[in-house]
């Protein structure tokens, strides 16, 4: 019944995105949760998603307690995993849908056969360490052919040259300058890129 409804609608639609959902706003809230553990942003996300998740889950389980459990579990994963969301890979709705579908799938297995094996994240991975984005921020100067010249320089000079010769800091230098862990710098750079892609749209892909 639900499946049919969904398939009718999806096949009738020609565009992927409708303007009924404010996607950049959702991305922004997820970013705020990820970077500053912003409770206000989370409350906004919760108000947008929770009632809808509750209805969808009620449709699947026909049981109010279990529907609430899906809401609780999904939204708590959103809170804990927001930093794994990557706007360059898809919409916030797609990400939250995946979280919800995975929670529902594991819960159904549990109810049906008392199996607590949580297989969903292996079948539908939420976020693996993404390789493509990582590459963007790798110390790409390493790849530059000019480094072969730099490599012939004495060690002390190499340090200076690698840092500012190209007028560019390394991620380590940026981390030291901002007094932040390298991991935080990397995730901020990734978030910044994700936001940028939302802002510039697809024209610059």
């Amino acid at each position: 019944m639900q499946t049919n409804l969904l398939s009718n609608v999806t096949s009738a639609k020609s565009t992927l995105m409708t303007d009924k959902i404010d996607h950049p706003q959702l991305c922004q809230w997820l970013d705020d949760v990820a970077t500053t553990r912003d409770k206000k942003a989370f409350t906004q996300l919760f108000q947008f998603f929770a009632p809808k998740i509750q209805r969808i889950a009620y449709g699947k389980f026909q049981n109010e307690t279990q529907a609430c459990e899906v809401v609780q579990e999904t939204m708590s994963n959103v809170w804990r995993k927001a930093h794994l969301f990557d706007a360059s890979k898809g919409a916030a709705t797609t990400w939250v849908y995946t979280v919800m579908r995975n929670v529902t799938f594991d819960m159904l297995r549990k109810i049906k056969g008392n199996r607590e094996d949580n297989l969903s994240d292996d079948i539908w991975p939420l976020a693996e360490q993404s390789i493509s984005n990582e590459e963007c921020f790798d110390d790409h100067l390493e790849n530059s052919q000019l480094l072969s010249v730099i490599d012939t320089l004495p060690e002390a000079q190499k340090q200076i040259v690698k840092g500012f010769y190209f007028m560019e800091m390394s991620q380590e230098q940026l981390a030291t300058h901002l007094n932040l862990p390298l991991g935080t710098i990397k995730s901020r750079l990734r978030l910044a890129l994700a936001k940028l892609k939302v802002q510039l749209g697809d024209n610059n892909d």
Partner: peptide
């Protein structure tokens, strides 16, 4: 799969679409 997931997700969280699910007991 990713296109379909995007569509289904979009539809799932769109108010007007969800209204269709609301039958009497809901």
């Amino acid at each position: 799969i990713s296109q379909l997931t995007e569509q289904v997700a979009e539809n799932s969280f769109e108010e007007t679409f969800l209204d269709r699910f609301i039958v009497d007991d809901m």
